[in-house]
Design a protein around this nucleic acid. Sequence first.
DNA 1: AAACCGGGGAT
DNA 2: ATCCCAGGTTT
Length: 360
Amino acid sequence: MNPVSAALLIWYRKNKRVLPWRKISDPYCIWISEVILQQTRVNQGIDYYMRFIERWPDVEQLARASEQEVLKLWQGLGYYSRARNMRLAAQEIVNKHNGVFPKTAIELKKLKGIGDYTAAAISSIAFNEPVAVIDGNVFRMLSRLFNEVTPIDSAAARKTFLLLAESLLDKNHPGDFNQAIMEFGALQCVPKNPDCENCTLQTHCMAFMLKKVDHLPVKRNNVRIRKRFLHYFVFLHKHEQQCYTLLRYRGSGDVWQGLYDFPCIESDRILSISELEKEHLFCAIKSVAPEIIPISGIRKHILTHQHLMAQFYIVKCNNGFEHVKNNSLSLVSQTELGNYPMPRLIDQFLYENENLFDNC
DNA sequence: AAACCGGGGAT
DNA sequence: ATCCCAGGTTT
């Protein structure tokens, strides 16, 4: 066997972290863990994994879940299409595969939310199929090991690095090998200041010999960040001893699809009250609300590709909502609020203003 | 091929 | 402030 592959497996068996999904070979559990860990650190995902498996222990139960409940459990984890697609894939497995998990990477890739990486991960770990995985760790690790300067965010990267990964893959232990190379990238061959002096692959590493570790992997890196300014209106309306507010369902075409926030006016900067008064929604609000009170402070919320600035307003509403109602708005009581999946920005606002509904 | 899609932690 | 994380889908 390739000496690098052998060294990786030895390193892995000695240094691997104890993780909940490593105890079992149930493809359902492997799948859940792999999707949760897409663009997500292990420590951030563990609690979500435990709650997910406990709530839906197998694919049949996930297939029967509502989208809203799945999104609610996913709340705070981000990239919500992962949750929506997992539920759809569970239904595909139950309805088209008799509840039996597809066993090959090619078949797995046909499921919603399963791409090259996840298909290879599941089939190699759960079914021992000899296919190599390519993820951020593997890109970094291989670029340094082979001094491979192809930019990892270029079109050619996947093909180039897949060949390298396949050249190392231990076909007798594909699952362990794939986990080993990723774990090595996560723990030893880290992005910044890797401890190369204490690396078991030091003598095999081209980047170390050429003193180029800090220059690999190569990235083009070209993301520009959009700034958005949101004016959120938190309605307060009392009806038969219950306090109600209006939530807006977020459809497709923007961030947070399938989640709920508040009615909103968006612009390219923060607007003053006099400027807001020119907005259609604001006129409608004015017509039913005697009081509109800004909550002090503009909240900043950072997404990978957008910076959101949000100003919240309390809208005290004595009468009905007829003038502001539309298809995407729901009247929700304070007690039901916890059932609705929301972006972190909204959830945090509610958490930090627990007494918001007291003087409703 | 490029754009889009979250949130958190390390540095 | 910047980077990056066990990526995938849409345009």
